[in-house]
Design a protein around this nucleic acid. Sequence first.
DNA 1: CTCTCCCT
Length: 811
Amino acid sequence: MTELPIHAALDDLIQALRSRGRAVLQAPPGAGKTTVVPLAMMQAGLTDGRIVMLEPRRLAARAAAERMAETLGEPVGQTVGYRVRGESKVSKSTRIEVVTEGILTRRIQHDPELAGVGAVIFDEFHERSLNADLGLALCLEVAGALRDDLMLVAMSATLDAEPVAALMDAPMITSEGRSYPVETRWLDRPLGPKARIPEATADLVVQAVRETEGGVLVFLPGEGEIRRVEGLLNGRLPDGCVVRALFGAMDFAAQRAAIQPATSGRKIVLATSIAETSLTIQDIRVVVDAGRARRSRFDPASGMSRLVTERVTKAEATQRAGRAGRVAEGTCYRLWTRGEEGGLQPFPPAEIESADLSGLVLELAQWGADPADLPLLTQPNAGSYAEATALLKMLGALDDNGRITEHGQQITRLPLHPRLAHMLTVAGRDAAPLAALLAERDPLRGAPVDLSLRIEAIRETRRFMEERPYQPHRPTLERIKQEAKRLAKDAPAPRGLSLPEMAALAYPDRIGARRKGTAPRYLMSGGNGAVLDETDPSANAPFLVITDVDGDRREARIRQAIEIRQSDLRALFEDRIAWQDICEWSPREGRVIARKQERLGAIALDDRIWQDPDPAEVARAMLDGVRQLPLPWTDAARRFAARVELARPNDPDLPSMRDDDLLATAEDWLLPYLDGIKSAGAWKNFDILPALRAMLDYGQMQALDRETPAHFTTPLGRQIPIDYGGEHPSIELRLQEMFGQKTHPTVAGKPLRVTLLSPAQRPVQTTMDIPGFWDSSYEDVRKDMRGRYPKHPWPDDPRQADPTLRAKPRS
DNA sequence: CTCTCCCT
């Protein structure tokens, strides 16, 4: 044990804790900090209280306790113990207690003084889990207000521990790691935009196997990609190579088999990010990194999380590469170029920035603090925070002022998402299997969506497997059963609710009402859309409680649901169902629809035509339609708008007549004129000119007539219309009618576009500068015209000639 | 082109 590199840093750490009571220890994986630090703190006699260490995973908590106990030559549960959900090995003599992160939160909420605890160590803090962020913030508050003797240590593997040290006002101590050098090999040129990750990864694996020796670990984003690469590698690897998959959904035994050293041959493990931190694989010398990571991201707009596949971050790529250097020097192949390396993000987002925050918001409400006042390393995502608050109010866990209710207090005591804890609290013990099911991954992936099939598989597994054509995922099913038993123990007496009623308690915002039409498309009470596979047996249900959907933004696919009767909805949500007058623009029908609807959130339970809607409301709804339709320009209206636009630079008070400005201000000028207009058809025939004219007052109108007159008076006194439809206002007239004209005609201070015509009314020249025309091209025009129209006058000096429309008098 | 990891 003395050979571990962490020992060199221990003196500094103990010294810092003795003088400051806090420290940040930065040590790479393999330095041995997890087992060495708590024992060293105990042996230094820093505190009489217990030393509590947080681990992000149950397996890691158990393993750390076991290794420390072994060092002391004791069984676990004496000096060193652990406590994870549903399992604990601690006794009166326990001095070091390893716990998972959620346990600490519960303990602080229950006993804010942390009586008997002398120190808290946050292991793997760089992972930035929601519970670790929250736990550290709460501990810092406790240490600041109630317990100035409470020691705090954050241990982090990455090189970016400074922000934590600053937050904790603690010295930073750095330790060397104990790993071998890893050589990185990049691609020569970037993957094309059309390149497929599995194909490209398989090629790289083949190359890596050819160029190196030893076990190979391949990082891929998910199970699907792992299966595809597995298929692509078939037959392309030398004899003796053994390919194994490794991902979270596999059962424990299969995971262990993948991790074990191969008894013969060369091992190639295709893994998700599970192999990045959670599981260490023996005898890996080579890493192939496909460069992608799949993460869950909470979308506040839909209130749901969805999975996204993104480029890995620098921190993840470093961590992955490090897995090749645990036993000897290794090699890391990256599916990107050296040049692309700079474009990678440094760290993945912390959970507090990207995850569902319902649990966190409830914990903060129980703590009685606003997140802005807490010493958090990162503030929670504002949109997710608001969405979580709204959900908790809907569940009755928070009151209107955002304070925790008695019901909310009960919810925090259950080890479940607030939705499920609410359901279990209200429905009682009967809901335990459903709560366990909804908390786990689906044991019947690919089967019809009906939830009752899954409950049947849980309750009567043997009969289900004999009689039903679906194969449940056994390890998941067993976990669910065990968890259901545990949840049932502390749950209140059952209230006799049906399965759909219980599910609806947890998902009041995901009651789906089938839309009209043949496709099984649903509108959910929360306002989002969801769609069911057409062949699913539930596809005709008028109402569904939708408990699981994929994350598609526009229309999510339903993965789990259960049909619910309308009468059940009415009984369950009596206080949230109400009649509403609906007067709105229907983009689908292209008209204003006026109805009276009995609504539960966004969905209608009953729907009737509203016979005599208020005209003002109709006009307002029509306005929403107008914003989605083109403006019905007539020639006259367009001419008028063009004149106003022309005059506007000289008179800033004139309203803008550009389409987008008109639409933006439609409420002011158009609304009073919309009486009786209810459809796209009526709007198309609507004359907007009177409404446009009414935007100008009397004075402005007079100025407009003066500045941008409807007609131009020719030198011969004729009135010809000015065309305001083009880019410039323009007129057309016979060239000879402009003889004698020494200046160019203007409106609103701008030159008219003048098209000069031949005696046969053909365009001869277009000009915005008559004097310039006389000086330059008139000479050529004159020669041409004289040949064609010899009977007409074509004087040498047009400036001095008289305007005329006649031919030359006969001589 | 059907779901990463984890926790009270």
